[in-house]
């Protein structure tokens, strides 16, 4: 199914980008080739401010934006080109123009005529906005993927070391034994004293405490142990899917990130979401486990080349 999701994301993405660019071009959304009038106030030799009214902007682009009546930007005049600096309060349209122009927050416009403070300029031609954004995304997300993976090496090594210690000393088995009554129900295919059980418990505990740095390495260790019990390498086992369903539900006692953002934005009660998100994630966890256990019986999701074993009760018992 991941195949289809992948195809859908890529194809829908590319088609939506192309469609949106074609639509923008046919309606000349960015008013390419039309001259924009603004007011330039020089503060020093070649630096100053430009301004125009919201009314003019709305009329020029045929939109209606939310902003103050007069929009002002820092700008500098270099030769016959005017460099206008946009910020996050600038209209979306101009920010897009700036970003597509040279991937910064600056718009480099060409001065066409000037009478005192009044100026008409030609903004840079803006086209293929979404296609360019897709291209950028391909490169930046590939780099991000590698960065994330490499960033894991350290904590990964640390937790694998600690887990090996716990395994060699028998600690993992003790942990597994304590949680046995729950784990045999959720993971009936895994022998209750297998190291996979201990690693999964450690991963879930780390998730519960909001220790994301520890949870991923411990979870990967658990996957590694689960894969040792996997007779069909390359294909997910029922236990793996159940384990991932629990992980993707993200049950935690402390949703630390959300609380931190709330506090930073001046919430009177940042932790009010403790209970609500525990409830939401709790339901998600239960639903995930039930869904995993029910779906594994469906014919489409059975492991294909092993019908005999499945019927023999080995894998899909």
């Amino acid at each position: 199914m991941l195949n289809y999701v992948w195809i859908a994301l890529v194809l829908i993405g590319v088609l939506a980008a192309a469609g949106s660019d074609i639509y923008d071009a046919s309606t000349n959304r960015y008013r390419n080739g039309e001259q924009f009038e603004l007011r330039y106030d020089s503060l020093a030799e070649n630096s100053g401010r430009v301004s125009y009214t919201r009314e003019y902007f709305d009329k020029f682009y045929g939109v209606s934006i939310e902003s103050p009546d007069t929009l002002t930007y820092n700008a500098s005049l270099v030769g016959s080109s005017l460099k206008i600096t946009t910020d996050e309060k600038s209209p979306e349209l101009w920010r897009t123009v700036a970003k597509t122009d040279d991937n910064s927050d600056q718009i480099t416009a060409k001065v066409m005529s000037r009478h005192g403070r009044e100026m008409t300029v030609l903004l840079p031609t803006t086209s293929l906005v979404k296609t360019k954004a897709v291209l950028d995304a391909v490169i930046s997300y590939s780099e991000m993927a590698v960065k994330i993976a490499l960033g894991l090496i350290g904590v990964m090594a640390f937790w694998l070391g600690i887990m090996k210690l716990a395994e060699d000393s028998g600690m993992i088995k003790i942990i597994a034994r304590i949680m046995k009554p729950v784990m045999v129900r959720v993971f009936p295919d895994i022998p209750p004293d297998h190291p996979a059980i201990g690693a999964m418990i450690m991963n879930m505990a780390a998730n519960m405490l909001g220790l994301n740095n520890a949870a991923t390495p411990l979870g990967l260790k658990a996957m590694d142990e689960l894969d040792k019990l996997n007779p069909h390498k390359g294909t997910a086992t029922d236990a793996m899917v159940t384990f991932l369903a629990i992980n993707t539900a993200g049950l935690t006692l402390i949703p630390a990130t959300a609380i931190a953002v709330r506090a930073a934005l001046g919430s009177k009660d940042p932790t009010v979401i403790l209970l609500t998100s525990f409830f939401g994630a709790g339901l998600a966890t239960i639903a995930g486990i039930i869904a995993a256990r029910l779906l594994q019986r469906l014919k489409v999701y059975r492991i294909k080349d092993t019908t005999e074993e499945a019927q023999g009760g080995g894998e899909t018992k």
Binding site: V5, G234, A236, V241, A287, G288
Partner: peptide, 19 residues
């Protein structure tokens, strides 16, 4: 663990998200 045939993992995960 080099698993690429993910079977019902996407469906189960998305059901959990939806709920």
């Amino acid at each position: 663990v080099n698993v690429y045939r993910t079977r019902h993992a996407v469906a189960a995960g998305l059901i959990a998200d939806f709920v």
